[in-house]
Amino acid sequence: MAFLNMFGKEKERPTAATADNRLSLVLSYQRSDIDERKLKQFQVRLIDLCDDFGYDVVGQVEIRPQSRQQDNTTVLNASIPVRLRGNSEDEESAGV
């Protein structure tokens, strides 16, 4: 039976690419001495900065460190959905 199972055995999904992605992420965190607390503080400051420039943050702010291998540096990718405050105020005053 074991012999027959051997023929029918399905190949499992390769895992090296997963390891590679996980490694990129942990190395980015490690090299930049980044932790979740620091990212959270950074997020708060970015929201304040948007406010200073007249933007309202209208969704989830995401900051994702990525490893750039050619020079061993970390790139912080920030995704900040915003809307120009003036527009929304116009909309509010217009009763939209």
Binding site: P14, T15, A16, A17, A19, D20, L23
Partner: peptide
């Protein structure tokens, strides 16, 4: 070769 170990290059 099976994609289950990081290559030396990586």
């Amino acid at each position: 070769k099976d994609g289950d170990m990081l290559s030396v290059e990586r």
